[in-house]
Design a protein around this nucleic acid. Structure first.
Lengths: 221, 221
DNA sequence: AAATATTTTTAGACTAATCTAAAAATTGTA
DNA sequence: TACAATTTTTAGATTAGTCTAAAAATATTT
């Protein structure tokens, strides 16, 4: 298989992320923002990626991944999330620490290594943040999930993921004891600031702010 | 800690390897050979490495690592060999497959990751080829070893390493059943071609060529 | 629809790492 | 010691990825 530079790979991931989020072609500016670089640099790179058949690119019209580009991007996400599982489960890092290391590890080139790693980890379907891990063909396991903020008093479900992946948020969750799989029931919702009082694992109660409840993915019971 | 490019790191490893092998300053040409590049490129890079305080360099006089360069080089070797142990012991790769993957993994930047990996693997002192793994301070465990070719008939010892790391040699050893730790006793030596007949693990006998016996490290009993 | 604002591209330049060809320094040998 | 062979360095060019500033295209507002 053809190899690409880490920079090229990071652009593909950025484009994938933006297209997924908006479900339409990614703009030069949006990519520049995602990559923390200038729009001019992005234009340069887009020309090169298009030449290599990784993206569909028309000047001023934004970009979308080709089949080939998509395969590559999902492969990167697969590697990233598998390494995150490894770092958390085997090396005992916490979920707010694993991202930066996985960001480097995802660029290791070796299909055989990915396969063995997947097997070693027991072919996990989700990473430590609850994000789905695509299989070797690039297929994601889809999970029906809603934000905690969408639940009504009395309803309950399990925490299956986070929307905000920042260390600050993840550390906050650790501090108040919310882990993936935790069982939450809405006890009360306060119209005043849209915060909610929840019962966690049928044990202790917490009040969660609007911001927190908008960043927790829940699978309803 | 300051970070360096993968290329710079690879030059440092090459210089370390050459200095260790010859125990004198490495020459431009030797480095070019080790790196499979031109002497001109090496000169360019040496100027840069010297500026960064990683090597002692005088034009036409060859190079040696500084304290700082040495620390970095041993750190790389430490990472390389720890990852090799991981690939072999945890992911079940064979000893002829692990090198190329480790060559990439050694450039992952994260002191904490190295520490956790070391701990996870049980702080191994030797890698799958019998090469010593430096500790976090860069100290190697030294082992008194001789080539199998230096043993006389009747003498015996354990295989503790290989001098030739090529997949061809390692696969050959696998084929004839020689693993790290195997117990060998010289049954007979043939002056004709300097081959030797050995008794392996007090079980089966093999004739090993001069070339093979010059590439196996033995710790004498 | 014209004027204005925003986005995107182009132009030109910089750095790291590389190359080939030629010049300079060192080493080996007669 | 001087000539030849070898090694090393310099000079000048190339590619990937980046930048700023300016020009061009598109989108928005009046």
């Amino acid at each position: 298989m053809e190899n690409f530079s880490q920079t090229e790979e990071n652009y593909l991931k950025a484009i994938f992320k933006l297209s997924e989020r908006e479900d339409k072609p990614a703009s030069t500016n949006a990519i520049a923002g995602e990559m923390s670089t200038s729009a001019a640099s992005v234009t340069d790179m887009l020309r090169r990626l298009a030449e290599k058949g990784l993206i569909h690119y028309e000047k001023y019209r934004g970009v979308a991944l080709t089949e080939k580009g998509n395969k590559l991007a999902t492969g990167l996400i697969r590697k990233h999330r598998l390494w995150e599982v490894f770092l958390l489960e085997k090396l005992r890092f916490s979920w707010d620490e694993v991202h930066d290391m996985a960001e480097q590890l995802e660029h290791i080139q070796s299909p055989e290594l990915v396969e063995r790693l997947d097997e070693y980890l027991g072919r996990p379907k989700f990473d430590p943040h609850g994000d789905p891990i695509p299989d070797a063909d690039g297929n994601f396991t889809f999970r029906k999930q809603v934000f905690l903020s969408a639940l009504n008093p009395g309803e309950s479900g399990a925490v299956v993921g986070v929307n905000d992946h920042s260390p600050a948020f993840l550390q906050y969750l650790d501090r108040i004891g919310i882990k993936l799989g935790a069982h939450l029931r809405i006890a009360e919702r306060f119209d005043y600031d849209e915060s909610v009082r929840v019962l966690m694992d049928d044990a202790n109660e917490q009040v969660l702010s609007k911001k927190v409840s908008q960043n927790l993915f829940i699978q309803k019971f």
